[in-house]
Every structure is written in C-alpha cells, then in structure tokens.
Design a protein around this nucleic acid. Structure first.
Length: 469
RNA sequence: GGCGCCAUACCCAAGUGGCUAAGGGGACGGUCUGCAAAACCGUUAUUCGGCGGUUCGAAUCCGCCUGGCGCCUCCA
C-alpha cells in the first residue's frame, strides 16, 4: 500500500516516493541542548520514531538522523553563568534527552551528529555559498546569506519576502547588505568558543548546521525532513535557502511538521517557562501510557498536556495490555465456534490499521483499530474460557505487532511470579481459604489488605489472579 | 499589520462531498460474580461554532461572522 504524506511545502497530502527504492532518508531536527528536555521534544521525537517504525515494518531501510545543536547563544550564556565550558551544559542535556528518549522506547538514530563535530562540513558549505555569490563575509568576520539571491525564499513558510522586510522589527545589523540576510557564521567574541576559518575565527550561525549535517549523512536530497511547527520559519526556510543554494538540488522531498504540546491551551515552550520536563512526567505516569497518549491525536494537531487526559490514557492503554495478558494465559486449543468470523474481523481491523497509518501516519485512527482488535479478541476469549483458538491467536499477534509499529508494548506484560512477596502470597492464600469456607467478611478483609499493599485480585474463571496496583 | 491553523456528544478524538458520524474516558442499564474486579452486551451527536451560498447530496467545498491558537524574534 502506498503511503501518503502531508508535505508542508506543497501544502497537501501527496504519495510518498523515495529517492532510492526501498530506502528512506529521514532527518528530524533535534534539540538545541540548552535545557532539560520537555514533553514537546518527546512528541516530535515520537512522531519521527513511529514514522520510521512504520517504514521499517513495511520493509524499507531507514537512515534516521537526529541532530544535537550543541553550540548557540543560550548554551554559551548558561555555561558562562555556571562558570563551566559550554560543552558541559550541552552534553549534560544531551544525555538527559537520550535517557528519556530511551525510556519512551524511541529507537536510536542511525546518526546523532553534533555541530561542534562538523565544523569543517559547515565551513565547506559556507565557502561554497560565498563562491556562488549567495553569501558574503562582512568586514567584521560575520558571514551572511544573501536572501534575495535565492528566489525560492519563503516557499516553505508561504511568506512573501517583502512582507517580511516591512514586518521586521529586528534591529538592522549594519554589516548586512539587506536586513533579511541571516548569519551563517558569527565572528568570535570574548568568552565564546571559536573555530578558525578562511574569513576569520568564530562559530556557526543557527541554521547552517542542519544543512551541513543532513546532507553529509543523507545526500543532497533527503526524503523526509521533520520537526516541530515552530521550525518552519525561519529555521527550515533558511535551511532550504542554504542547501539548495549550495547544491542546486531539491533539499528535501517531504517536509513533515508536528503540532504543539500545549499547556492550558498555549504552546509548551522553554522561553516562556511554560513547560513540563519529561523527567517529572515519567515519575507520575507510565511511560507506555505517555507514548500512547501522545499518539492519540494526529501529529499535526495540537495536543493538550493535562493530567486528567493522561490518567484516561493509562486506563485505555491498560485495556489493550489486559487483552494481551489474558490471551497469553490461555492455551491454544481447537477452533472457536465463530472461527471464520473472528479470522475475518481480525484481518479487517489489521487492514484498517495499515490504511490509517498509510494515510499521513494517522496514529489516532490506527489506535482505534487496536481497540477494535482488542474487543474482537476479548469477546472470543469470553466465549471459550481457559483456551483460545488459532484465529484468536492470530488476532492477538496482530494487536501486538501493530502496537509495536507505534512503539507500544515494550514492557513485560506482567511481573514475574517470583516478584510476588511472601506476605502478599500469604494474604492471597488467606482469602482463598476464607472463600472456600464462604467466610466472606474474612475474604474481603484479605482483599482490602492486598489493596492496601498495592495489589488487586481478580477472580477469573480459572481462579484468582493477582495484579500489581 | 502580514501569513496560517483550529472549532465534531458530558470530556478526549477520528472522519474532509453520498454506506448506520470510528475509537477511548465518563455515566446509566444488563450478563458473569458471594460481593467486587476484569471482560462482554446495550444506551448516551437525526447532528458536526453561527449565518448564508455551491451541489441531486456537505461535518466535509466557497464567503462572511464569532471564539481559540500559532508563526513573522530563541523555540520540537
């Protein structure tokens, strides 16, 4: 089945065709490691990760690049404040990002390029732009991109170059030929890291690193370039100008941008201090449920981050896990009375999931299919206590497999038996004995004690079952 | 000021020209159960912010209005 992607540049859903058949080159604009990662960063990473997983599941090979911008004004400012080298701040936040990405089952990227390790590539592309007349070094050592020399400028963000100029309230830098021009290279200032170049020492501007690093690992034309909506302008617009200005080729065939995570209806953002560090969130909620929640809304729509919704997500996601757990307990036996019907339903829901994901990675709709699958399974399971049929098992396999396409179901379905403490097992036995002698008061007492200790007991057809929490 | 996005039930959320408007949470009723829990069955939008228009037909297309948000400056 062919995949359709909403491309920001074209402004519509278009069929996906890779540059090279069977291979997808993806670049997701990573974080500027100036602060701790928050939920918004994780959303964009999860969006990228699930897109990658879907391609891989379909058999494509994906080269996935996620960058760390490890030198910029804020990182330097924070480092100077703390009296440490800027790399201390950058690495510290990078480590945190990787830690929580892993906690949310985000696959490792093929490459995690850092700006400071690609200075030569950056210098090369700037030199190329200077040679082509698309950039110029000012007397003070700054190098600027000559925006008006690139006639496609504004095509991604749908901005008119003249509107930009009139609306610009930024102070005009005297060194610029035109107020629209942006910095590719910033000349060295006291207390700042600097590298030597043909036009003087200094450090890279903000946008050039992504052009240099993405093309290094993925070639001059990427298949997919993604990131948060806020990167459309100026970041990605400038990347296009730099990359296409240098290569003369289309920089990225598809631009994928995700919507905000909001707090109280407003964009979560570091600069406004309205954000929830992911470190806090994983303390309060199950990582699997967090990932589930962030995919319960289409990636281009905003999603509100609110505890009540997260609790609902935990509950809803728990249902899917319960289905898998219950099925795992059953022994595979003969055919179900409705074997063919179950087989057909399972296949239908599986197909619906694939269709949803193929339509611009509609995870919200895809999750709906997972619940449909779950109901099909539960119903069948209810009808044949203690066992499951091949058709049911095949539906269970689909549920598990498709859930993993969304990066779900990575934690064990239940705690191993040995994990149950002696006293809990003793309480369970107490309750079982009380129930056997129909001493309900005593049985309930034991159940309450279990609940107080964090365990629930469910009386299934095949006997009582202990579950944590 | 320029450009753009969003508005679907009590809540969240799919659906973007025509089958009964997915799915989840909640609520209510039922099955099962000693009681619960879990699971299952049923009910919960003749209607998609408002007003017009296009069309045989619109939640879906167009216009206006109202309300919310974003980008134009660092930002996933």
């Amino acid at each position: 089945m062919s995949i359709r992607i909403y491309d920001t540049l074209k402004g519509e859903k278009v069929p996906f065709e890779p540059v090279r058949a069977g291979h997808v080159g993806m670049y997701v604009c990573g974080v500027t490691v100036q602060n701790v990662p928050h939920v918004g960063h994780m959303r964009s990473s999860i969006v990228g990760d699930s897109i990658r997983r879907f391609f891989e599941w379909q058999g494509d090979e994906v080269t996935f690049v996620y960058n760390f911008t490890d030198v910029d004004d804020k990182i330097i400012a924070i480092a100077n404040d703390e009296g440490v080298d800027f790399t201390v701040v950058a690495r510290r936040n990078e480590v945190l990002f990787l830690k929580y990405a892993d906690m949310l089952n985000i696959k490792s990227a093929s490459h995690y390029p850092r700006v400071t390790e690609h200075i030569q590539e950056i210098i090369d592309i700037i030199q190329k732009l200077i040679d082509k007349g698309k950039a110029y070094a000012a007397p003070n050592g700054d190098v600027f991109y000559r925006v008006r020399s690139f006639n496609g400028y504004g095509k991604l963000s749908k901005k008119n170059i003249d509107d930009l100029q009139s609306g610009s309230r930024v102070q005009v830098d005297e060194a610029k030929e035109d107020p629209l021009d942006f910095a590719l290279w910033k000349s060295a200032k006291p207390g700042e890291p600097a590298w030597e170049t043909p036009w003087g020492s200094g450090r890279p501007g903000w946008h050039i690193e992504c052009s240099a690093m993405s093309m290094k690992y993925l070639g001059e034309t990427l298949d997919i370039h993604g990131g948060g909506e806020d990167l459309i302008f100026p970041h990605h617009e400038n990347e296009i100008a730099q990359s296409e200005g240098a290569s003369g080729k289309c920089f990225s065939n598809y631009w994928v941008h995700n919507g905000w995570v909001t707090l109280g209806g407003e964009k979560m953002s570091k600069s406004t201090f309205k954000f929830r560090p992911i470190s806090e969130v994983v303390e309060d909620f199950e990582p699997e449920a967090i990932r589930f929640y962030l995919q319960s809304t289409h990636y281009r729509s905003p999603i509100e981050f609110i505890e009540e919704r997260l609790r609902e997500a935990e509950k809803a996601y728990g249902k899917l896990r319960n289905t898998l757990l219950e099925a795992a307990k059953r022994t595979l036996a003969g055919e179900h009375p409705r074997e063919e019907e179950i087989q057909a339903e399972g296949a239908k829901h599986r197909e619906a999931f694939i269709e949803a994901m193929s339509d611009d990675f509609n995870t919200a709709r895809a999750l709906g299919s997972l619940f449909d699958l779950s109901r099909t399974i539960n119903r069948a399971l209810d009808e044949t206590p203690g066992s499951k049929s091949p058709a049911v098992q095949s539906a269970v396999d689909s549920l598990f497999e498709l859930g993993q396409v969304l990066g779900l179901f990575w934690l064990p379905l239940e705690d191993e038996g040995e994990d149950i403490p002696e006293e809990i097992q003793a309480l369970l036995k107490q309750r079982n004995d009380a129930r056997a002698s129909k001493d309900w008061a005593k049985a309930d007492e034991a159940r309450d004690a279990l609940a107080a200790a964090g365990w629930v007991v469910e009386d299934r057809a095949d006997g009582p079952r202990l579950k944590r929490k």
